[in-house]
Amino acid sequence: MNAVRTVLGDVPPERLGVCDAHDHLFLSSPALPGQELHKVSAARAELAAFRARGGGSVVQWTPYGMGRRAADLPALSRESGVHVVAATGLHQRAQYADAVIDELRGRLAEVFVAELTEGIGTSGVRAGLIKVAGGFHALDAHARWTMTAAAEAHRATGAPVSVHLEHGTGALDVLDLLCGELAVPPHRVILGHLNRSPDFAGHRQAAEAGCYLAFDGPSRAHHATDWRMPDAVRALAEAGFGDRLLLGGDTTTDAGRSVNGGPGMPYLLRRVAPRLALAVGEELVARILTENPGRAFAVEWG
């Protein structure tokens, strides 16, 4: 039995509607000092703007210890009419103080499972995916630790595993570890930020492995996102992998919100989807935004 675990409960995959497959309503990162996403009012406005463009669901990839504000998510989802999926998991080592990592030693998988099955903190909001991260063209000890815990949590809960690829690199190393050594089924793995490295051969190899490929982060400065993404998606579609593709916005700073003059969540539907439709057709874009996320983010059990 499959369902997508939203902050308001489990819903059938076909009820997601148009999905922003990777974004952030709330985020606090030491890499982005002074640019935190922490305002409830701004998150509310962003969801409303996304909904006005036809958006139906948002998958928030903000993991443990990075300002998820899980307790605020149900009301925002209810008020906006947009399904929201929350994440457990752990980002790169640089995102955390030593005390946080020390406190998680020996129980990381246990924390992930608890947040997936019981709730995040005292919020009662259950996470719907496990987010981890690789490094630049490599996997360090921290990445291997977090991915090992993610694999354990996946086996215990059936939740999908999403992966931040640093600058879009290291996809095959991630798959060797997660799907090879740790035996996570490839269709339960979502690789993020492939737009940042326009390596068409690497994209093809990752797709052949059976995972989902997310092109997320439109109009991010110094990334090869906007101008190469349609070509990358077309190449994958022509090779028969249209059912493995996802699109997301990945808003990470307050200035990047549409309500503050940035592209924000609506940009995905306002500019990215129409431009992509010119390359691969409206029918495929519709499937990438609706059908594919329903499969990718479903929790499998039973």
Rank of each mutant, 00 (worst) to 15 (best):
D243E: 13
R105H: 09
A42G: 05
A42L: 11
Q35Y: 11
H203S: 14
H154L: 01
R275P: 04
G170A: 12
A279H: 11
E36D: 13
L245M: 05
D250S: 07
G56C: 02
L213D: 15
D98I: 01
A237S: 03
V84P: 04
E282A: 04
P185H: 03
E181C: 10
R144T: 04
A31T: 05
A45N: 04
S123P: 04
K131Q: 07
A3F: 01
A156R: 01
P30I: 13
E166M: 10
V111Q: 09
A109S: 12
H154A: 00
K39Q: 15
G89Q: 10
V59D: 10
P33M: 12
E181K: 06
G248Q: 13
H154W: 02
G121N: 02
F200H: 14
F215W: 13
F200E: 14
F215H: 12
V58P: 07
D72W: 07
V125D: 04
R5K: 02
L236W: 06
P274Q: 03
R257Q: 06
F297L: 01
A70H: 06
H167W: 13
I190S: 12
R271Q: 14
T62A: 12
T122I: 08
G248S: 15
R188G: 06
V11I: 01
R53E: 15
F112S: 09
H193N: 10
A133I: 10
V84I: 15
R144F: 09
R93G: 06
A31G: 15
D231P: 06
C211W: 04
T253L: 14
A206W: 14
M66S: 10
A159L: 03
E291Q: 14
R78M: 15
M66Q: 08
A21T: 01
R228P: 13
G248T: 08
L289M: 08
A151Y: 04
L247D: 06
V40Q: 12
V113Y: 05
V4M: 00
E79Y: 14
V161W: 01
I120S: 06
T253K: 09
E103Y: 11
D23P: 06
D254Y: 09
S197I: 10
A279S: 12
D199F: 15
A114I: 01
R287K: 01
R78T: 11
S197G: 09
D10P: 01
L165A: 00
H223Q: 09
T117K: 07
A86N: 07
L213R: 13
V100E: 12
R220Q: 10
L269G: 00
S162N: 04
D20E: 09
L8V: 00
G81L: 12
A232Y: 14
A279Y: 06
G192C: 12
A206F: 14
R126F: 08
L213T: 14
E300I: 02
V272S: 07
V174L: 09
V7A: 12
S57C: 07
T253R: 14
L32S: 08
Q95L: 06
A183M: 00
S28A: 11
L172C: 11
P230Q: 11
R51H: 11
C211N: 00
A31L: 14
L175V: 06
A156Q: 00
H24P: 03
V113D: 09
T148Y: 00
A151W: 04
L213P: 15
R51Q: 10
G256W: 02
